[in-house]
């Protein structure tokens, strides 16, 4: 029986792990073997304080892990598949089941994050790994001098499009609106970059190719008759996110998008379950906010565990 079990090994989970370990809570962190934290696939993070030169997502998360483990955090690689109520000496507890084992804890912190949404168009699934990609840092180097299409207009799409210009001769950003949603500095860089061009008010309707991507079919959202094919060797898709919360349906409150509803103390609707980071309903999903949430969730969980054990400071 652990005091606190953390599910997820991104910035939120690892920060929660560091705080919980420093609080001398018996803590276990389950790191997914299947879904890496999305930030580990980001080439450059320029807005996490303390790194004025920027840092790669993978390197930053490795530092988080190193720092958390330094304080005794126990991490294992395993994926939670279900969560159910249990009890320990008449105190309420939770049991997290993975494909091969199960773990019990008085409190659980969910920090499972999100994955990139798929377009769900013809050719996308068939050509994944054959030109369709959701990870520019992994796959960009395979497209030297290619023409690439990036789908999306937010921070990630624009950041990754900029990264891909290191390899590709041309990158076309296909965005469903007439301007980018990305933050000002990224927008400016994209507009200034000679290798980047734009297809505005456009959506991808099909990804073409037999054994490898040869192009994408796009349609103008304002004029559906206006369809055309962009020849391209690769398509990188960054249109949105889906939270990893499907195993929590019926256990705690989720919003219509599947994000976990939490209060300011990172409490969910289920007593003893806390949540933090990108999988929660919140305004801004960034490393810096994930870390803040993670610290709060750990503190909140510690308080809850101490109350259960009757060892709350001040009582």
């Amino acid at each position: 029986m652990y005091d606190i079990l953390i599910v997820g090994s991104g910035p939120a989970g690892l920060t929660a792990g560091m705080y919980a370990s420093r609080a001398a809570m018996r803590t276990l962190l389950l790191a997914s073997a299947y879904h890496p934290s999305l930030i580990t696939t980001t080439d450059l993070i320029e807005n996490y304080p303390g790194f004025p030169e920027g840092i790669s997502g993978f390197e930053l998360v490795e530092k988080f892990r190193e720092q958390a483990e330094k304080f005794g955090l126990e991490c294992i690689q395993d994926d939670a598949v279900s969560l159910e109520k249990t009890s320990k000496n008449s105190a309420p507890a939770w049991k997290v089941t993975t494909s091969g084992s199960s773990f019990e804890a008085l409190a659980v912190i969910i920090a499972t994050g999100t994955e990139y949404a798929h377009l769900n168009v013809k050719g996308e699934e068939e050509l994944t790994g054959r030109g369709v990609s959701y990870c520019a840092t992994c796959d960009g180097p395979f497209f030297k001098d290619a023409h690439l299409v990036v789908v999306g207009g937010g921070d990630t799409a624009v950041q990754e499009a900029l990264f891909l210009t290191r390899f590709a001769r041309k990158v076309t950003i296909v965005h469903r609106r007439d301007r980018l949603r990305a933050t000002g500095i990224l927008r400016q860089r994209a507009h200034d970059n000679e290798r980047i061009s734009f297809e505005w008010n456009a959506v991808v309707t099909e990804i073409m190719g037999e054994s490898a991507v040869t192009g994408v079919k796009i349609r103008n959202v304002k004029n559906p008759e206006d369809e055309k094919v962009l020849k391209a060797e690769g398509v990188f898709i960054f249109t949105g996110y889906i939270p990893y919360t499907s195993f929590l349906h019926g256990i705690l409150a989720l919003d219509e998008g599947g994000y976990i509803v939490v209060d300011a103390e990172m409490k969910t609707s289920a007593p003893g379950i806390f949540a933090c980071g990108d999988c929660t309903k919140k305004l801004l999903r960034q490393v810096v906010t994930a870390c803040g949430d993670g610290a709060t969730a750990a503190f909140s969980a510690e308080h809850y565990v101490n109350e259960l054990k009757g060892t709350l400071y001040g009582t």
Binding site: A33, P36, T41, G57, Q77, T137, C138, P141
Partner: peptide, 13 residues
């Protein structure tokens, strides 16, 4: 590849 974060998850497996 060294540049690929997710590749490093497969290593121990």
């Amino acid at each position: 590849a060294e540049w690929c974060g997710p590749c490093k998850m497969i290593g121990p497996i």
